[in-house]
Write a protein that binds this DNA or RNA. Structure first.
Lengths: 357, 357
DNA sequence: CTGAAAGCGCTAACAG
DNA sequence: CTGTTAGCGCTTTCAG
């Protein structure tokens, strides 16, 4: 690549000791080259890029011209090593495929990008082992902050994260003992409130379906919330009215069928996931059950599908975008050394009563 | 943190000149500390971690013990600078919120993670300007490879990417002039084939709805495919039977209503997105139109929703996961210096004929 | 199989 | 406002 200098540029090749960019294979331009062409020292280039206020307009412009002329792309790997700041936030979610996590990441990435931070994203899978392995390699990249969505970490994972000494935000559930910071809502309270709503509507034989809770403490919390609401109302709790199922439309229909086989008189079903709920609703359409008269259907998350079906589905609305935005703000605030940072934010939830109950 | 050495460990503090890890604030353990405790040189620790085959089992174990004892986390930022390899692949998609992109990223991340690579993920937004800005800052992080989903890049963006000298894969559309490598399918052919199917089914007044095509060449390609199929069949093409709409269930219903207002005798509608198609189907339910008899409905992408509704929705199936997996393989192969890498992979598509047409 | 020396490209710290 | 000096923590040579 040639270096078409603007006429009258402030070039001053004082010390041509180092080879020019053209001489090096790959043609990678370094800060030193830019500095020489701009007639300033490398550190001034560095400052013109990172702290423009510290540099005179004159130098700033010379640097800008030199960068434009050379097509210089700065090397943030070197910068990160020198400054001990990567401007990277790591985020680990169970999977990208679940739109519920995606909604959080959308707003988090946008907030980070606006401040010059980037997102390093990984899928932890469902087990503590895969989660630990992933977090461990992420930490080696020295992110300035960490966001976690998913289960409570294993003790050794937790220890490793604490040891890293960076701000950490968990976003999956309002837990008692966050590793560091927390922004979420109570899955227990939400499930309990929704179940309570079903009871208030007059439903008495209420089934519950959710993803497997073995490695999923949010699913467990929702299940406990469902049970607590029944117990509070003096209704019988039966394991026979509870099923585990993978997420999916078809799976929601199958879950409902399975519950109906065990109890033909089931009059409502709480499916802890809108996609499951929509699947159950479609199953009702097919089998000629009227919703909400013959069968009440309720979901969780308030995804788009919940308000698109007819009847529309009663569900728990959770501000997923808020979680991402606030998580980014918390991390950035702590990186900035602000001390007034909340360590625990409850974003709440609300029950969206629609036509399916 | 204490350093509980295993009994009989091969410790040998020969040169206690450097401060121990405990003495440094933050307690960050460096490779040098591990080396001293293991009784080897730093480079042997490095090799034990990166190229275990080059190290004797004896040293390897000593290193492993020292790492376990100290809780050492290696610094890949320093490693990346020294080796000029980050083991990071950057990926830029329009938004994380669209499950269509998520499906690709799921498999790409999994493939990368399995090889010790990580994903740096960003949302480019819809315009060339935001895309350029994002790619520019990503490049400064020196990724070893780049994945792009979205529009054809602006010329200056393209130049910047080429200049980076790293493998680049585009995944959005089978284009003529890829920047470097390409793995996708023909949006034009797919839309044309689906429209042809509608014509074969006997539909004659076929509407078309898709996201705005101003900054979206895939939407444009689909629109051209729709028009080409009509023209091939000798059917009239009318702008009045074409609408632009944001994605969404409600928007799909509204798009169908808008089309029907312009042409009451519309007998089918191709909605370039399953969510739109499902929304249109729900609208038919509400307005008492029978599908597929009064109105044929077809979608695009074969998302879960397409086979969950009743009637199920005819759509174009696209192997999104394949695209991600193959993209990762292409990038990794080129990083490995393998020369036999395909530069252009057509993953194809197929029409899933279901009950809505 | 192991080690010593020499950077990778940038920025912190200090001095002017 | 600008420059000099000295690393950041690791890996690449190149010798043994």
């Amino acid at each position: 690549m040639s270096l078409p200098l603007a006429p009258g540029s402030t070039e001053s090749r004082v010390a041509p000791s180092a080879p020019d960019a053209q001489d090096r294979p790959g043609g990678q331009v370094r800060m030193e080259d830019v500095a020489r062409i701009a007639g300033v020292s490398p550190i001034t280039v560095s400052r013109a890029l990172s702290k423009p206020d510290m540099v005179s307009p004159r130098s700033r412009e010379a640097v800008a011209r030199a960068i434009a002329a050379t097509g210089y792309v700065r090397n943030l790997v070197a910068g990160s090593l020198a400054s001990q700041k990567t401007h990277v936030v790591a985020a680990v979610v169970p999977t990208f495929a679940n739109p519920v996590f995606a909604a959080t990441l959308v707003s988090m990435e946008a907030a980070l990008q606006a401040k010059g931070f980037h997102l390093m994203l990984g899928q932890s899978g469902a087990t503590p082992q895969t989660q630990h392995a992933l977090i461990s390699t992420f930490l080696a990249r020295r992110p300035d902050g960490f966001f976690l969505h998913g289960n409570r970490c294993a003790p050794e994972t937790r220890r490793m994260l604490v040891q890293a000494g960076i701000p950490i935000v968990e976003g999956a559930n309002l837990r008692d003992d966050p590793i560091d910071m927390l922004v979420s809502f109570s899955n227990f309270d939400a499930a309990k409130a929704l179940t309570r709503h079903l009871i208030d509507r007059g439903y008495r034989r209420i089934g519950f379906a959710s993803p497997p809770w073995r490695h999923n403490d949010r699913a467990r919390a929702r299940r406990r919330g469902y049970i607590a609401a029944l117990a509070d109302a003096g209704l019988a709790v039966s394991e026979r009215r509870i099923v585990e199922t993978p997420l999916g439309f078809r799976e929601g229909g199958e879950a409902l069928r399975a519950l109906l086989e065990r109890d033909k008189r089931l009059d409502a079903c709480f499916l802890a996931g809108d996609v499951l709920a929509a699947g159950a609703l479609f199953e009702c359409h097919r089998s000629g059950r009227r919703v909400p008269d013959d069968m009440g259907i309720a979901g969780f998350d308030d995804q788009d599908i919940a308000s698109a079906t007819s009847p529309q589905i009663t569900t728990v609305h959770v501000p997923r975008q808020e979680i991402g935005r606030i998580a980014a703000e918390m991390i950035l605030a702590r990186i900035d050394g602000r001390a007034d940072v909340d360590r625990r934010v409850d974003v709440g939830f609300d029950i969206r009563v629609r036509q399916s109950t």
